[in-house]
Write a protein that binds this DNA or RNA. Structure first.
Lengths: 232, 232
DNA sequence: CCAAAAGTGTTTTAGATACACCCATGA
DNA sequence: TCATGGGTGTATCTAAAACACTTTTGG
């Protein structure tokens, strides 16, 4: 018997706010909850921490089980621990914001869950305090992305400057000067220009770029101002 | 019986990394652990979350019980959940960095615990993963304080510009140009100059200032560059 | 009267912002 | 040939950084 036995024990969950970008809109990935209470309603991707599992490993596992994706950027941002947040039994939830390349998501890997992408601005009401989680996650993502190049995690291998610009505009809900923003992006030496153009969204076509992995890793920890402070 | 009954339950703790500043050195407040294991060794101020208690409330309670202080700035920064981190029983710890005015600390409020301030650079080895927690807390504090005026939480009601400068130099382990830094501080309109001088540390004496509470609250959320990015 | 720390002033430089214009191409 | 979005060039403005000097006063 533990010498800590006087102290209470709790269920501990992880919840992922999973962001994706389809080239036009910032989206979140939601699932139909398969257990009571609130069965069938939309929910974040979450699950309980296993007996011998670290919280961050649990968060990765949950996303892998439900989407099949294992190459994921995630970051813990807040603990939700209001005693009454889950009406059935008190659960302390460790929340992560999670960024995935939307193209890597293979629908219905696990058929027990039906998942769907929703534009952030147009998502259904979620169970428990999940709406609050999403709100807070977006705020933390904005904070992070104003100073670190995280948003590239949302893009496919090849992407264009106009695509990145739209992504930043979506995340912050602002209009950027495309000329200055392009100059900024290129000056960071994060991008490698490819000899190939994306021709769907314009007649002239926009050059594809890919990440310079080495510089990306080096500059990730450093603080680089991507978005002017007042907007954050 | 809960319908979540298949999932494991855990002890959940809060741990506070409590920072203070005595005018010269950045310090942390540690306690002698009063329970086994590692009884008598130095530890962070922590405790288990109560049955019906929020994590942040628990963190406040722990500090209040051990120091008598209830006017505290604290912020959650990380969850430590390695399964083996506590050798007796698995405990998931929610960690907070906590800033208090060192002058408000009344020694030995609670006689069951003996607490002491240690210069951060000269602290004893701590139990479990607490050294790692301190390291991570300092990093997060640096990040936060580079953009928000949190460090004023460490200062007494009245303080001088040279004191603030030393504080920032301590937190970041850097040398600042006192002329430029003073100008920066004053330009933010966070400070109200008092008609009184601190005469101990110099012949000329330095004017005392106090916080402009209104502007402080307003500018707290905004992002203001206090420390140049490369140092963070 | 001088050492030591407080405080004010000025120049330089880098980067953000604003804005004008040319380019490539499909319809 | 022209409308459309891609891309480059340049002038301006703001704030950070570098550096010099004056002020005050106890010993």
């Amino acid at each position: 018997m533990s010498i800590y036995s006087g102290a209470p024990h709790f269920l501990v969950a992880v919840d992922n706010i999973i962001f994706g970008f389809d080239g036009e809109k910032l989206k979140i990935l939601l699932v139909h909850r398969h257990i009571e209470p609130e069965k069938g309603k939309w929910s974040l991707m979450g699950g309980f921490i296993g007996q011998n599992e670290r919280p961050d490993t649990a968060a990765l596992r949950v996303v892998r089980e439900l989407t099949g994706i294992s190459d994921i950027y995630m970051e813990h941002f807040e603990v939700f621990g209001e005693p009454q947040r889950d009406p059935i039994e008190r659960t302390i939830s460790i929340a992560y914001f999670t960024l995935i390349d939307i193209n890597k998501y293979q629908h219905q890997i696990n058929h027990a869950y039906s998942a769907a992408w929703f534009p952030l601005a147009d998502a259904p009401q979620l169970i428990f305090d999940h709406d609050e989680m999403v709100k807070s996650a977006l705020q933390k993502l904005r904070y992070k992305a104003a100073l670190h190049p995280v948003l590239f995690e949302l893009l496919p291998e090849k992407f264009t400057i106009p695509q990145i610009t739209i992504l930043y505009e979506e995340v912050y809900g602002i209009q950027l000067d495309k000329r200055n923003f392009a100059r900024k992006l290129l000056s960071l030496e994060l991008l490698i220009k490819l000899n190939e153009k994306e021709k769907e969204s314009s007649k002239k076509g926009a050059f594809y770029y890919r990440l310079n992995e080495k510089n990306y890793k080096e500059k990730f920890g450093a603080m680089t101002k991507f978005i002017p402070f007042p907007y954050v």
